[in-house]
Design a protein around this nucleic acid. Structure first.
Length: 904
RNA sequence: AGUCUCUUAGCUCAGUUGGUAGAGCAUUACCUUGACAAGGUAGGGGUCAGCAGUUCGAGUCUGCUAGAGACUACCA
C-alpha cells in the first residue's frame, strides 16, 4: 500500500471525529461488558460565552488522554460535557446587543422578554466552544451534554436552595457587600480582584470638636464617604485622644453631630490615630458600628452616585466627582490638613475592572459552617480530593476552607436561576420550590418573587451530581450509581475555591459522596513574554490557529508534555517538534505499509491468540525482535504507571523516545533489508510493534493513530478490548498495551545494547576521522567468546549500519599500526585505515578518550578509597562502583596500549 | 504583612525514597544511504542563583541571602 508522503492533519481530523461520534464510541454504552468498572470525568463547564483558549486546550487534552486511555483499557468510560450559563457574561452580551441593535435598555423590554433574548443568544452563539471541542478530538459523550439552566439542573438548584434555607443555612440579611456599579450587582469575595494604583491619595480632614476649639484629623482614601460618617474612632489607650472620647464632632458639610468613640480596631500608630467611621460603606466600619450601635447612613445610590442623604449639594454626583468636591469644600473651610500621594490597592470587578464599592445592602447568603466542616473532614479524613500536584494545593485548599466566610449568592441580574423566594405585601419571605408552594406557605396571599438570581457558581457547585440526574425530586439514577464519585477533576488554580471546593462540599452534603477522588490542577500557559495570556496584553495564542498550523495531534501531545501543574511559556517550536514527530510516525508507518502485501496472508487473518502464539515461538525471533518487544513492554508498563500518577509529561517522553529512538532509529533500520526483501515474518513483526506503538500513542494523538491503524493489515475489531467486540474497528477501542512482563528480555537488551554500542563507535570513528561513507572498511572486533557470538549473529546488521564491508571477530585484535581504535563495554574495535589516518590526530583522539575515562576513574577511586563510603554506603552501590571501576580500568588499559602501538 | 513556589545547557523546560546532570530547539561537522531534509549520523555546550550546614556523598534535605512569581489577608 502506498500512502501520502506527508501527514495531512486536516483530512484525518474531519473524517475521524465524525465517524467516532456517529458510531457512538464516546458514550459509555459502547462498552458491552456488564461487569466493566466505571471511569468518569465531568468537564469544568466552560462559559457559553466562551471560546476555546489555551487553558481549555490544555485541560481538555489531559481529560481526553485519561478518558481514551481508560476506555481502551475496557472501563465503562464517561466524560461528560456541558456549559455554564455564565450569568454576568451573558447578561452583558445581551445588553450590548440590545443597545446596538435597538438602542434599548433592558428595562425598556422587561424581564421576561430579556430572558427570552438571552436564551436566543445562547442558542445562536452558545455552541462555539462545543464545536471547538469537537475539533480538539475530545471524546466526550455528547448525548449527555448538560447546561446549568437545563430544566432538571434548575430544579436541583431550587431544591438545594430550599433545603439549605429550611435548615437555616441560607439567610437573607443586610451586610456590607462588594458592589459593582457598572454591572449593578453584588459580587462574592472571590469575584473581586485587586489592582494596585500609584495615583492614590490619602486625604487628611479636620473635624471640629464640639464645644472646643480643637479639631480631630482623620485620614481617608475615599473622602466622599465622610458624608456618611456616623462616628470618629480612636484607640482607647491612645493618650492623645483620651480626653476627647465621648465628645461630639461637628461633621462638616452635613450639619450633623457624631460621637468620638474608643475602639480597639483603631491602630494608634497608623495615620493620625483617628478613624472616620462609615458603617454603611466599609466592612470594618460596619463592625465598629455594630459594636457601638451607630447609625448606618447610606449616602450612595447603586450606580455609585451620591444620594439624597449625602445632602442636596452632592446628590446625583458620581462618587469620584463628589470626592473632589468634598476636598474642595474642606479646603474652603480651612479644614483640609493635607493630601498625600499614596499607593493603594483597589478592589475591582473581576470581569469589568470597575472599582468595587463596599456598600450596605440586603442580600442572600449561604452560611458556610456546616459545609466547611464537611469539606474539611473530606480533605483531612479521606484526603479527598487528592491533589496533583499535592504541593502547594493541599495546603492552600485546606487553609482556605479553614478561614471560609459566608457566601453571597444573590446577584442583581435577570439571566440565571431566579431565587425561589417570594414576598407578601408586608415583606414577609416565603421560600418554596415553586410559586404554588410558596403561596401555600403564605396562606394564599398575593406574592411577588425575589427579583435576584443566584450566583452562577451556585449551580456549578452541583455539577458533579446534577449532571448525572439528581435534581432533588429524583435522587437515584443509574448514572449516579455508576459514575459518582467521579474519578478525577482536571482544572486550573483560578477556580479551586470558586468551584472545586464548593462542588466537594455540596456533593457531600446532598448525595453523601465525594464529588471526585483526584483533582489535577494544571499550570497556566503563559504568553511568549512570560505573562498570563490576555486580550489586553495581546500575548494570547489561539489554539485553533495552532491546530491549523501544526495539527490537533501535535498541539495535544505538546500540551501533554508540560509537567503537571507547572506554568509554561508558550513556544511554537515545541509544537513544531511534535508536528515533526507526527510526520515521523506517518512516514514510519508509510514504510511499513509499503511492504504490507507480503505479510497480508500471514497476518491479516490471524487472531490475537494466533499472534500471541507466534510471539511465544521465541526461536523465530531475531535479537532485534526480542529487543524491541522488551523495550515496547517496558515502555508500556512505565507509560501506564505514569498516567496512573497523572505524570503526563513522563508518559509523552516515554512514547516519544520509544517510537523515534528504539523503533525508527534502530528497529526499522536493523530489519530493513529483510523487510524490503519480502520476508513475511520480518514484516509481520514490524506490524506487530507498530500496532502496539500506535495504541500507546492514541490517547495523545487520536487522529493520526486512527488514520494509520485502520490501514494496518490485520487491524480489526479482533484487536479491540473484549468490552468492545461488537463495535466497528477503531484504535480508540483497541486494547491498551499493558506491558506484559513475559516479554521483558534483559538478555536481549544487553546483547542489543552491545551491538548498538559497537555500531556507534564505528560510526564515531568514521565521523571523527572524517572518512567518506563511500569508503568501505573492515571492522575488527575483539571480545569475549559470548559477545563474539552475538556480533557474529548480527554481522549483517553491523555491516549495514556501520557501513563496513567486512567484520573480523576474534579473541584479540590483529591489525596493522595504521588503525583507528576504540573500546566499548564489551569489545575493543579497530578499523585499519592505511593511508587515511593521521597518526598525530589519532593519538589525540585516543588521548581524549582516555582523559574522559580518567576523570570518571579518579572520582570513582576517590569514593572507593574513602573508608566512610565503603563502610556506610549500601553494599550494592559499592559493588556497582567497583564494577564500573574495573570496566574503566580495562578500557583505559586497552586504549593505552592502542596508543602505544601507534608509537612503535 | 503572611503562606508558598521557582532560579538547571544559548532558549524553553524535565530531573521522588540523596549515589556518574537530561530532553527538545538552537549550534558544529558530515550525509540527496529507497519511510521521513518536517530527515539521518557523529559532536560541542552546565561551579544545577549565591553562601553555610547535615551526610561517606547534595541539583535533590536544612538555614540564610539575592532575584522572579503565585495566592491569601489588610491597607483609616
Amino acid at each position: 500500500m502506498e500512502i501520502a508522503k506527508a501527514y495531512d492533519p486536516k483530512e484525518a481530523e474531519e473524517k475521524n471525529y465524525q465517524r467516532w461520534e456517529s458510531l457512538g464510541f464516546f458514550a459509555p454504552e459502547i462498552n458491552g461488558n456488564p461487569d466493566a468498572e466505571a471511569f468518569s470525568i465531568v468537564i469544568p463547564p466552560p462559559n457559553v460565552t466562551g471560546s476555546l483558549h489555551m487553558g481549555h486546550a490544555l485541560q481538555h487534552t489531559l481529560m481526553d488522554v485519561l478518558t481514551r486511555w481508560k476506555r481502551m483499557q475496557g472501563y465503562r468510560t464517561l466524560w461528560l460535557p456541558g456549559t455554564d450559563h455564565a450569568g454576568i457574561s451573558v447578561q452583558r452580551k445581551v445588553v450590548e446587543q440590545l443597545k446596538k441593535d435597538e438602542h434599548k435598555k433592558p428595562m425598556d423590554i422587561g424581564r421576561e422578554e430579556f430572558v427570552k433574548r438571552a436564551w436566543k443568544w445562547k442558542e445562536l452563539y452558545g455552541n462555539t466552544i462545543t464545536e471547538q471541542m469537537r475539533r480538539e478530538g475530545a471524546s466526550v459523550d455528547w448525548t449527555r451534554q448538560r447546561f446549568t439552566m437545563d430544566e432538571s439542573l434548575s430544579l436541583a438548584v431550587r431544591n438545594v436552595f430550599c433545603t439549605l434555607y429550611d435548615e437555616g443555612n441560607i439567610y437573607r440579611g443586610l451586610r456590607i457587600v462588594n458592589w459593582c456599579p457598572k454591572d449593578k450587582t453584588v459580587l462574592s469575595d472571590l469575584e473581586v480582584k485587586e489592582e494596585t494604583s500609584k495615583d492614590g491619595k490619602l486625604t487628611y480632614l479636620r473635624y471640629p470638636v464640639k464645644d472646643s476649639d480643637k479639631t480631630i484629623t482623620v485620614a481617608t482614601t475615599r473622602p466622599e464617604t465622610m458624608l456618611g460618617d456616623t462616628a470618629v474612632a480612636v484607640n482607647g489607650d491612645d493618650e492623645r485622644y483620651k480626653d476627647l472620647v465621648g465628645k461630639m464632632v461637628l461633621l462638616p458639610l452635613t450639619n450633623r453631630e457624631i460621637p468620638i468613640i474608643a475602639d480597639a480596631y483603631v491602630d494608634a500608630e497608623f495615620g493620625t490615630g483617628a478613624v472616620k467611621i462609615t458603617p454603611a460603606h466599609d466592612p470594618n466600619d460596619y463592625l465598629v458600628g455594630e459594636r457601638h450601635n451607630l447609625e448606618q447612613r447610606l449616602v450612595m445610590n447603586m450606580d455609585a452616585t451620591m444620594n439624597a442623604a449625602a445632602g442636596t449639594e452632592f446628590e446625583g454626583l458620581d462618587r469620584f466627582v463628589a470626592r473632589e468636591k468634598v476636598v474642595e469644600e474642606f479646603e474652603k473651610l480651612g479644614l483640609l490638613e493635607k493630601v498625600d500621594d499614596y499607593e493603594i490597592t483597589l478592589p475591582v470587578c473581576e470581569r469589568c475592572k470597575t472599582i468595587v464599592e463596599p456598600i450596605l445592602s440586603e442580600q442572600w447568603f449561604v452560611k458556610m459552617d456546616e459545609l466547611r466542616d464537611m469539606g474539611l473532614e473530606l480533605i483531612k479524613q479521606e484526603n479527598a480530593p487528592h491533589f496533583s500536584p499535592e504541593v502547594p494545593h493541599l495546603k492552600v485548599y485546606t487553609a482556605w476552607l479553614e478561614n471560609l466566610k459566608d457566601w453571597t449568592i444573590s446577584r442583581q441580574l435577570w439571566w440565571g436561576h431566579q431565587i425561589p423566594a417570594w414576598y407578601d405585601a408586608d415583606g414577609n419571605v416565603f421560600v418554596g420550590r415553586t410559586e404554588e408552594e410558596a403561596k401555600e406557605k403564605a396562606g394564599g396571599r398575593e406574592l411577588t418573587q425575589d427579583s435576584d438570581v443566584l450566583d452562577t457558581w451556585f449551580s456549578s457547585g452541583l455539577w458533579a451530581f446534577s449532571t448525572l440526574g439528581w435534581n432533588g425530586d429524583v435522587t437515584t439514577t443509574l448514572d449516579l450509581e455508576t459514575f459518582l464519585p467521579t474519578d478525577v477533576l482536571v482544572t486550573g488554580r483560578d477556580i479551586m475555591f470558586l468551584w472545586v471546593s464548593r462542588m466537594m462540599m455540596l456533593t457531600k452534603k446532598f448525595v453523601g459522596k465525594t464529588a471526585f477522588k483526584d483533582c489535577v490542577i494544571t499550570g497556566t500557559v503563559l504568553g511568549k513574554d512570560g505573562k498570563p495570556m490576555s486580550k489586553s496584553r495581546g500575548n494570547g495564542v489561539d489554539p485553533i490557529e495552532m491546530f491549523d498550523k501544526f495539527g490537533v495531534d501535535a498541539t495535544r501531545i505538546y500540551l501533554a508534555s508540560i509537567a503537571t501543574g507547572a506554568d509554561i511559556r508558550w513556544n511554537d517550536i515545541g509544537v513544531e517538534t511534535y508536528r515533526n514527530f507526527a510526520n515521523k510516525i506517518w512516514n514510519a508507518a508509510r514504510f511499513c505499509l509499503m511492504y504490507s502485501e507480503a505479510s497480508d496472508l500471514d497476518w491479516a487473518t490471524a487472531t490475537q491468540e494466533e499472534k500471541d502464539k507466534y510471539r511465544e515461538e521465541r526461536g523465530r525471533l531475531t535479537l532485534a525482535d526480542r529487543w524491541i518487544d522488551s523495550r515496547a513492554a517496558k515502555t508500556a508498563q512505565a507509560l501506564n504507571r505514569s498516567l496512573e500518577n497523572y505524570q503526563f509529561h513522563e508518559a509523552v517522553n516515554l512514547v516519544f523516545h520509544f517510537f523515534r529512538d528504539d523503533f525508527c532509529d534502530w528497529y526499522i533500520e536493523l530489519r530493513k533489508d529483510e523487510i524490503v526483501a519480502g520476508n513475511i515474518l520480518a514484516s509481520a513483526h514490524l506490524f506487530w510493534v507498530l500496532d502496539m506503538a500506535l495504541r500507546m500513542l492514541h490517547p495523545f494523538m487520536p487522529y493520526l493513530t486512527e488514520e494509520l491503524w485502520l490501514k494496518l493489515p490485520g487491524s480489526s475489531d479482533a484487536l479491540h478490548n473484549p468490552a468492545y467486540r461488537e463495535a466497528d474497528a477503531s484504535i480508540m477501542l483497541a486494547d491498551f498495551p499493558v506491558g506484559n512482563p513475559k516479554w521483558f528480555d534483559d538478555i536481549a537488551e544487553k546483547e542489543m545494547e552491545s551491538v548498538i554500542e559497537l555500531i556507534k563507535k564505528v560510526r564515531n570513528i568514521r565521523a571523527e576521522i572524517n572518512i567518506s561513507t563511500a569508503v568501505k572498511f573492515t571492522v575488527h572486533v575483539a571480545a569475549h567468546e559470548y559477545f563474539q557470538k552475538v556480533f557474529a549473529a548480527n554481522e549483517a546488521q553491523i555491516l549495514k549500519l556501520a557501513k563496513a564491508e567486512k567484520l573480523v571477530i576474534g579473541e584479540t585484535l590483529d591489525v596493522p599500526r595504521a588503525s583507528a581504535k576504540a573500546v566499548t563495554a564489551d569489545a575493543s574495535i579497530a578499523v585499519p585505515l592505511e593511508g587515511l589516518i593521521d597518526f598525530d590526530k589519532e593519538r589525540e583522539r585516543l588521548q581524549n578518550q582516555i582523559e574522559k575515562l580518567d576523570i570518571e576513574l579518579q572520582r570513582l577511586n576517590g569514593q572507593l578509597s574513602n573508608e566512610n563510603f565503603v563502610s556506610k554506603a549500601p553494599a550494592e552501590k559499592v559493588e556497582e562502583l567497583r564494577d564500573r571501576q574495573t570496566e574503566i580500568e580495562q578500557q583505559t588499559k586497552t586504549l593505552t596500549s592502542n596508543l602505544e602501538s601507534l608509537n612503535v
